[in-house]
Amino acid sequence: MRHVAPTREAFDRRVLAVPPLAHWQAYEPLIAAQAWPVTDELNALLPAGSSQHFVTQDKALLDDGLHYEERIARGAVATRPGNWHDLFNALVWLRYPALKRALNARQVEEIARMGPRERSRPQCALTHFDEAGIIVTLRDPRMLAAWDRHDWHALFWTHREAWVRGDARVEIFGHALLEHALTPDKLLVGKALVVMGGGDAVEACTRAIAGGGILNDPQELRPLPVSGVPGWHAGTADEAFYTTAPCFQPIRAGRLYPAALGALPGSDEPVIADVIA
């Protein structure tokens, strides 16, 4: 069923105080205002010298015949006016420009290889992450092992304090996931890349994507019911939530996940972490 976001006039602004939207408070005026922001307002927030800018999507723009991603590579992020999906896409561009550029560069490479009408496995993976992506940082390999077997109770309840302390963290990257968060109490499931240890998880993912080492198949992405993160949903106060809510699905037979990303001490280069449960 296609998701229908609430109207700007009617949406419950209390969702802005609850994660994940609470983590986007810097952009709350653009989200909560009665009037939709226009592209000029969004462009004013870009850093000087930005290689991309937002342009209103209209017939004249679409008549250029370019693929959406090809247009971005030339500097123009097509943005539909009065549209939640595209507004959140713009906000992600403002917060994570290097990561968005890495995804776009990979998409353009695939378009050149496949043509504009065919989609490769890497394109599907890149799109899934762009729309519903999350970046998860963990320090405890036991949490990764629990995630590997979809033991949601262990991941979120047994290791609850790790989430509360910030030793386990989630950053929402996917703009469709942010759009879904406008609906109160909606159970959210993201498509995750996971980084073990400290360091800059976003930078590690950006470098790995740009280098072509990850997101070559959708099966690389781990589903994570982010509504299970303590405090992200009212149900997280109840232990039974983790065994009864429909977002907590068992692992499919034969499903295996790739190793986590990590960063070598003293190195900027992302590596595949050797994590042993």
Rank of each mutant, 00 (worst) to 15 (best):
H85D: 11
F88P: 06
E69R: 05
A44M: 04
V77A: 00
R95W: 01
A33D: 10
D40Q: 14
L45I: 10
A98Q: 13
W36G: 03
D40E: 13
V77F: 00
S50V: 01
L61I: 04
A35P: 15
A44K: 02
E70N: 10
P97C: 06
A48G: 14
W84D: 00
L42V: 05
A35S: 15
L42Q: 01
A73L: 10
Y96C: 14
R80M: 12
F54V: 03
D40V: 14
A32K: 15
Y68N: 04
G65D: 03
A90R: 02
E70K: 12
G65K: 07
R95N: 09
A90V: 07
D86H: 01
Q57G: 12
L46W: 05
P81K: 00
H85I: 08
A33W: 09
W93G: 03
A33N: 11
F88V: 06
Q34R: 15
G49R: 11
A102T: 05
L61Y: 04
A32S: 13
N83R: 10
N83Y: 05
D63P: 08
D86P: 03
D86I: 00
V38I: 13
K100V: 10
V38K: 13
N83W: 04
P81W: 03
I72F: 01
A33M: 03
G65H: 04
A76E: 14
L91R: 01
P37V: 06
A60H: 15
E70A: 04
A90P: 02
G65P: 00
P37L: 02
L42C: 10
D86A: 00
L46G: 07
F88S: 07
W36F: 08
L45R: 03
D64E: 08
H67G: 11
P37K: 04
Q57D: 13
W93I: 08
D86K: 00
N89T: 07
L30N: 02
D86Y: 01
N83K: 04
R80A: 15
